[in-house]
Design a protein around this nucleic acid. Structure first.
Lengths: 293, 293
DNA sequence: GATTATATATCAGTATATCCGATATATTAT
DNA sequence: ATAATATATCGGATATACTGATATATAATC
């Protein structure tokens, strides 16, 4: 074994920051030490892991292929150290979730998880699907919980739970009197929707396939709560995940509308980096998610 | 990170040999260096990994729980190093197999595997099921291919392919004239069988459930070839895996006997250590096994 | 119970590795 | 051109890892 864990840390940090000085800082060591460690690693195996273009350190092909292994190795080393310190299951867990999942689905799961594993420091990052996927690919998040489809060669995508969109309006709205809505009525309505690019909107667009160009998008908002408020104010009809509407329906401030012609099903997914080591904490999180479903 | 890969190596080797001097020797270092490394690891985390009973180093509870992690870590470190050396898929693979599997099933798979991955140094160890399981648990084998059932908390057991036992005799034997054999005829026969404890015998005993005490075991032999020779010599009838008999049947020196009342099916299994890191080589081997099936 | 063989622990000395601070050098931005 | 920002390199201090010799403890043998 001609390399050290320290060299691995420097390699990982440098790959992450693409900046040796900041990598060194993050490891609480001098820039010169980091430079030395990296060169030592390369020289020992007479190879290169980074392309030095100007003053930038950019992972080259070999470096790129080694990164997943290195990350996995370090995760396990962390876990080994924690086990040595007899802290059992602990560590940090960075979870990413989209707005809808983060605000409605994940909160009770986090509550459960924190009760079961108080030693694990869990952190929730809410962002859109693309941003979460990017962070998972770059090892900045341990796991992402997303709504839309998103494919990438480095991602492992696992279906999690199914969800349903619901069209809704106020009890006073004329549509509230109908048992079901026809396509013509959908076209005639004033829609209040999530913005393009959001998972919810993506699913809505798919469900309304064929009608899309005729629909009147009266208002686009970036938050589900704002959409509910706007619909309650009588500005039009909306379409959101049923999980975000449960409260409003039971209070009676909003009512669901049946749209039998349209498939409103969609899927939530787990995404993880394919080559990431599944720490015990991560395993427990996934179990917890699946248990609460 | 307060530990080094070298310390991990010493820890693993010592756990393996239960003898510091031999561990040191296997790592090409002095006994004093090994002793120091181990103590350093323990002192850094103010804990113990071994019980020093007399001059024996015996893994204690914590050490025992840490071993799988350490082994996995080192396997990955090896793989990382190989990747650094750009040797792609390489390394050693220690495969264990029982006599029947080792002599008949595995040979063509090894041939295929060696063609596909010439860089991997594969080694086959033939032994009985219990011995193979033991070696897998102790990290001495990467994978075991066994016939019988064998359960252990540290083992992951995956069904692989099914096999069938066949009762057989010479064409001249009076039974060869019958279409099927009844239980009475089975009891009346002179049996030539593998020894008790072998996977083949275990499966035979299960198939003959209820008749076992009445059967006449004329001869017990430890090798399938010897059993075929004995049956060919007219000493009685035998029962072996059909895969070991294909040649003899096609040559006509032996003939199969139908025993419709008895379930002669059995299963071959993979066993691996549950917490072992699946190296790329090991993954390829399993793919190869499943592909050739 | 004494003796021998076998193991582990410890110590001193040495070689090696790691790190920091300072400095040289190269690149990008202004 | 100049300033700001990064990486590479060098010397020296410090820490670490190793060997060989030795002390100590245990198991085996007579």
């Amino acid at each position: 074994m001609k390399f050290t864990l320290r060299q691995l840390q420097v390699f990982i940090a440098t790959a992450h920051y693409k900046n040796l000085s900041r990598a060194a800082e993050s490891l609480a060591m001098s820039q010169s030490a980091a430079s030395g460690a990296l060169q030592d690693l390369e020289q020992r195996y007479s190879t290169q892991l980074f392309d030095r273009v100007g003053k930038r350190l950019q992972l080259n092909g070999l470096g790129h292929s080694l990164r997943p292994l290195a990350e996995s190795l370090m995760s396990q080393a962390d876990e080994f150290e924690r086990a040595l310190q007899q802290q059992d299951i602990a560590g940090k867990l960075n979870v990413g979730a989209t707005l809808t999942i983060g605000n409605y689905v994940v909160i009770p799961i986090i509550a459960q998880f924190m009760r079961d594993y108080p030693a694990i420091d869990i952190r929730l990052h809410v962002a859109n699907t693309a941003h979460i996927a990017e962070q998972v690919i770059n090892y900045e998040l341990d796991i992402g919980l997303i709504e839309g489809e998103y494919n990438h060669q480095d991602l492992s995508i696992v279906p999690w739970q199914s969800d349903e969109l619901v069209v809704f309006c106020t009890p006073e709205h004329p549509y509230a009197a109908f048992d079901v809505l026809t396509d013509e009525q959908l076209v005639a309505a004033n829609w209040i929707l999530r913005e393009s690019g959001s998972g919810t909107r993506q699913a809505f667009d798919r469900a309304m396939h064929g009608l899309l160009n005729e629909l009147k998008t009266h208002l686009e908002l970036e938050h589900t709560e704002a959409i509910k408020r706007a619909v309650e104010a009588g500005l039009g009809i909306g379409c959101l995940s049923k999980i975000t509407l449960a409260d409003a329906f039971s209070r009676g401030s909003l009512v669901p509308l049946e749209v039998p012609d349209r498939d409103m099903e969609r899927q939530f997914y787990f995404i993880t980096h394919k080559k990431k080591y599944w720490s015990v904490g991560l395993q427990r999180w996934i179990e917890c998610c699946q248990g609460t479903t």
